[in-house]
Simulated assay, not measured.
Amino acid sequence: NRQILERVNKAMPFLIYDRDPYMVITENGRLVWMIDGYTTANSYPYSATLSELGNYIRNSVKVTIDAYNGTVSFYIADSTDPLINAYSRIFPGVFKPVSLMPTDLRSHIRYPQALFTIQAKVYSLYHMTDPQVFYNKEDLWKIPESFSEGATETMMPYYTIMKLAEVGKTEEFILMVPLSPAKKENMIAWLAARCDEPNYGKMLVFDFPKQNLVYGPEQIESRINQDPEISKTLTLWNQGGSRVIWGSLLVIPVEQSLIYVQPLYIAAQSGGVPELKRVIVSYGNSIAMEETLEKSLNTIFGKTFEPLAQEASSQPVPNNSSDVKSLISEAGHQFESAQEELKRGNWAGYGNAMQKVEQLLKDLGNKIK
């Protein structure tokens, strides 16, 4: 069977498989599919039931499929799970320890979005540790909604590369999602799952001070729609047989602040390949919509870094204007490269380019502190 999800389901039908398999390239150039496998149950004591998954779920298995010969390998990723240990004894030799997975494949293991979304929803309630607050649900959180394809939908967690404040010494691959109060739209925290060894699977939450207003994704998109120039342009583009497609809103933590980046595409009502038309950047109270990311960043940050006037008696003032312009230019170049990869359907290339964009924006944020 050449359909990889059907293939693994026939091999091990008692596991639940992630709907988002991804392909990696090994050191010797072979293509290998990787799929996350879950053990589930519906009779775990004192546990809430989640739709069709029951009330117990573990990402206990990592599956690899060689794209050339179809070889399927099952690796135990969570040796503390009693279910996968039982299956391993029932089918001796089928499940191997994840330590036996080739190193070049292990480096591509990522924390699954589906499981992380479930955990984020559960944490939105159970982060409350005070019994009275928990009973009254006074501090209930939610995953914010985002505008896409003419409708609002729950924001999906996304992968990014960043240096975690206070706990990380270098940049690392993480999965993150912002969180908002249940009845408000501002951002109250963001949750992250680490994907790199030796910290794989460790989760962190970064709380924002409640006394300070931090714009959430819904508020940013509302501010975008309320901007007179942007609103006028979008209304014009949505006429004459074309439609505006909102790209994924990217929330990028930079030290003690956030940068929001959202691409806008235009496509014909009858179909066709969407074309990148504008890039919106929001930072603080400023919003810019320009043809490229570079121009949007320049609109917001350009005037901030003009050389400071110096009096004859004053000490020379360091000027990092050229560094900032270089970072803005490179970020714009990488963003355009990402869009080209997206048009070609090269998701790996698109992801790599967007990761570079995020890192450049973080470097830019460090320059403007």
Rank of each mutant, 00 (worst) to 15 (best):
Lys184His: 08
Glu138Ile: 00
Met101Ile: 04
Tyr158Cys: 03
Ile90Leu: 11
Arg106Asp: 04
Thr160Leu: 12
Ala165Tyr: 10
Tyr123His: 08
Leu125Lys: 02
Lys163Leu: 10
Glu171Asp: 12
Phe95Val: 01
Tyr126Leu: 10
Asp130Val: 06
Thr170Leu: 13
Ile161Gln: 08
Ala86His: 10
Lys96Cys: 05
Glu171Ala: 08
Glu185His: 13
Ser146Gly: 03
Asp104Lys: 08
Pro97Ala: 07
Phe91Gln: 09
Met176Arg: 10
Asp130Cys: 05
Ala189Met: 12
Met101Pro: 00
Phe134His: 12
Met162Asn: 00
Lys184Ser: 06
Ser180Tyr: 06
Lys163Asn: 14
Ile143Gly: 05
Ile109Gly: 00
Ala114Leu: 09
Thr117Met: 07
Ala86Glu: 14
Arg110Ile: 09
Val133Trp: 04
Pro181Trp: 14
Lys163Glu: 13
Met128Leu: 06
Pro97Leu: 06
Leu164Pro: 01
His127Asp: 12
Trp141Tyr: 10
Leu175Tyr: 06
Phe95Thr: 03
Tyr87Trp: 03
Ala120Tyr: 02
His127Leu: 05
Tyr87Met: 02
Leu191Ile: 09
Gln132Thr: 12
Tyr111Pro: 01
Thr152Cys: 03
Ala182Gln: 07
Glu171Leu: 06
Pro97Phe: 04
Leu179Met: 15
Pro157Trp: 08
Thr160Asn: 00
Gly150Val: 11
Phe134Thr: 08
Leu100Ala: 12
Ser99Ala: 11
Arg89Cys: 01
Phe91Cys: 04
Ile174Phe: 13
Arg110Gly: 00
His127Gln: 14
Pro178Gly: 00
Asn186Ile: 00
Ser107Gln: 10
Leu105Thr: 04
Ile188Tyr: 14
Asn136Glu: 15
Ile188Leu: 15
Met162Arg: 10
Tyr159Trp: 05
Tyr158Trp: 11
Lys163Met: 11
Ser124Val: 02
Thr152Trp: 15
Ile118Glu: 05
Arg89Phe: 05
Tyr111Met: 01
Leu191Cys: 06
Thr103Phe: 01
Val167Met: 12
Pro144Gly: 09
Pro144Asp: 09
Asp139Met: 07
Thr152Pro: 00
Val177Phe: 07
Glu166Gln: 13
Leu100Glu: 14
Thr154Met: 11
Ile84Phe: 07
Glu172His: 01
Gly168Asp: 03
Ala192Trp: 02
Glu185Arg: 13
Arg110Leu: 01
Ala189Arg: 07
Met128Val: 12
Pro102Phe: 07
Leu179Tyr: 10
Val94Ile: 15
Val94Cys: 05
Tyr126Gly: 06
Met187Asp: 02
Thr129Tyr: 05
Phe147Cys: 00
Lys169Thr: 13
Phe134Ala: 15
Gly93Cys: 05
Pro92Trp: 06
Thr117His: 01
Lys184Met: 04
Glu185Pro: 00
Gln119Asp: 13
Ile161Phe: 03
Thr152Asn: 11
Gln119Asn: 09
Ser124Trp: 07
His108Gln: 14
Lys137Ala: 10
Tyr87Arg: 02
Asn85Ala: 15
Pro181Met: 13
Glu149Ser: 09
Arg110Gln: 04
Pro131Gln: 09
Glu172Val: 05
